[in-house]
Amino acid sequence: MNARQRARLAFWLLAPALTFVVVLGAFPVLSQFALSFTKFNLKFADERGFAGLSNFAQLVSDGVFWQDLGHTAYFTVVSVGLELVLGLAAALVLNRVLRGRTAMNSSLMVPWALPTVVAATMWSLLLNDRIGLVNSVLERLGLMGEPIVWLGPRLAMTSVILADVWKTTPFVAIILLAGLKSIPNQYYEAAALDGAGRWAVFRSITLPLLKPFIAIAVLFRTMDAFRVFDLIWVLTGGASRTETLSIYIYRVLFRYGDLGYGSTMTVALFVIVFVLSLGLIRFMRISGETR
């Protein structure tokens, strides 16, 4: 087979996958870009027209957008941070467990396996101020005077973050556990011979070798957290300063039917997540010279 034939074969082998990428990936993104320059509301379809940059001008001066971007960033940083710390701790513990590992692993995975909507509905019942389990436990332990309004103005964001941490820490833990398993034992044996302490071992062996796994976990979680929708939608509906960009975009696109401005915000969210991911990839050096 000469080079040309090989290239042709490669093309045909790639074609199905490429078609999928174009149809399901590139096409929607590009049409979203195109829509962002139009004035187009589903319910006022007769007023459709070219809008130039006016949607983007609206975006710049839209207080809600920037406010929700702030909520989204806060949610992402705090929840991913907590998930990373707790997930790492869980992975380190699980890596040591010798007996009953399967049982522990599978019980850890339960929150992650639950559909988000189900988990969120469950949390909203648990956190109800009057008849929720959380408050009734606190009350019985004598730790609570007035009932705590978990989803109220003061604690809403904290509660939402805790529910997210509960739900997705297992995901981080499993990825990091896989990472821990991949570290060859001889490094640890060598360190033991050299008389390294636990902290030194952790810092000089475990952490550096785990870095690519941490990077993957953080990347996945950041992208997910930045687009969070269902959990918050069910718990607060976006009230009490918990509205994220996805919820705002949903309102504009689906409730208002405003495809033009909604697409503009989608494009903005796409760019933000894209740049963020690129930044993370560079920072963590996942690609290229990993080792």
Binding site: N128, D129, R130, P147, V149, L151, G152, P153, T236, A239, S240
Partner: peptide, 8 residues
């Protein structure tokens, strides 16, 4: 008269 939780 109304509990604070009524807002949720």
């Amino acid at each position: 008269i109304s509990p604070a939780g009524v807002l949720t």
